[in-house]
Design a binder for these strands. Sequence first.
DNA 1: GTGGTCTAGACCACT
DNA 2: GTGGTCTAGACCACG
Lengths: 137, 137, 137, 137
Amino acid sequence: MSIDFDILPSDPVPIYRQIVDQVRRRVASGGLAAGDELPSVRALAQAHAINPMTVSKAYSLLEAEGLLERRRGMGMCVAAVRSARSASQRLALLEPALQAAAQQARELGLSAEQAQQLFTHCLARAGLPSGPDQEEP
Amino acid sequence: MSIDFDILPSDPVPIYRQIVDQVRRRVASGGLAAGDELPSVRALAQAHAINPMTVSKAYSLLEAEGLLERRRGMGMCVAAVRSARSASQRLALLEPALQAAAQQARELGLSAEQAQQLFTHCLARAGLPSGPDQEEP
Amino acid sequence: MSIDFDILPSDPVPIYRQIVDQVRRRVASGGLAAGDELPSVRALAQAHAINPMTVSKAYSLLEAEGLLERRRGMGMCVAAVRSARSASQRLALLEPALQAAAQQARELGLSAEQAQQLFTHCLARAGLPSGPDQEEP
Amino acid sequence: MSIDFDILPSDPVPIYRQIVDQVRRRVASGGLAAGDELPSVRALAQAHAINPMTVSKAYSLLEAEGLLERRRGMGMCVAAVRSARSASQRLALLEPALQAAAQQARELGLSAEQAQQLFTHCLARAGLPSGPDQEEP
DNA sequence: GTGGTCTAGACCACT
DNA sequence: GTGGTCTAGACCACG
């Protein structure tokens, strides 16, 4: 399968949102390229034991967003437009999360060094590559 | 006023949760010390144009948590118990946000260096002190 | 009620789409101004004997589009941005329908005069004002 | 080739319907006369990169309607019966599109003059003859 | 096979 | 009161 989602039904963020977010980021990173097929609604629903309507809702939102294209009778694929983005654009997508974390760190009375050190730990645990950059389009 | 909240009604996180989280962090950091008064429900509600019920819900949760104490007729204040926490405890409160950001960075195909650099920028913008630590109790 | 929809369940265009289209046009025309409240999901559903989910779907699409804003616990209202549009922008919204009609007329071997005459008849029947313009923002 | 279709796979109206509608109108106008041959299913499918089943479905509907005739081993042709229609009948086929456009214009708060002017522009761009009528049978 | 639409009902979250 | 989410099942349209 071209993409395997991480779905956590117990997560506070709704399932359909988990799908939407993951597709957005993978398209931005180039992990999903223009023309790539997505798993069918039914297949994805069955694979994660969720309702097809939930998957359909996620796909519909992504289509309205212009990220996915519906090919009638043939499933959905990544739209030609809006495929992989530059590193700076991808960083812009990451910024809100880090901005919120920075504010939390401030409210917690932590120093910048303490927060940076913890983030480095989290990045290592998440298994990010340590090169200066990656797969630049 | 002893504390000024950052309330963003358009934020996806509910208003009452924004209040609760900010009080938690400031108590943990010592920014709010035992005995400090909080703005009254109606004052806080009016200042941010939100529903008094929303503020009341946040305060009630914090009271149930033991962080705030209700003094009849005199508003609420920070409870004596459970005041400032150690640096490691405060770091533990920050970790979830950074963990989520790290996963987003991975899905975006960014390198650890890129993410760290952006976080440093966010920390500087948020105005964190750069010393190795701060106001340790 | 601030707005009354024309819902035709038997129409080939889906119900949720009828709602979306009508809100779009009324916002563009200024019939719905920024800040105006919309009927609640349940109220609209009951008034037209349709499922609340159907209404909710329409509202969600309009919110994703930026036309409506959700005020938590207080229903939805027209967003401040993207309120009434200029006459030329509204004409642009009408153009696709007329473009399609023009192509049909050509394929039907009709003359421009015949098509124009029929359109004039339709406009009169729809009850349009005949002034050179209307409620320019 | 006796007819060249305008097929837009991304159009909301289904492909088979685009074919059916275009044949109907061109037969009504006389652009397709009794006995005229239509492109073969596989030729039309290949020319527009669509599924042969889709073309076949359209042709079958038109055959059931009596507009086309299947000649064994020789493709399809326009049936003798039901060839070109009178101008008033053709206008009746155009009316629904114009009726819908008129309602949209009303909801957009446009004046009749504005809508008529835009329609005139669309007709000119579509290349309609401006004579009072055309090729009346 | 594909996705789309609608229904019905339940439960949750926010104000 | 408000909207959001998810489930279950049915039916349709398209290729």
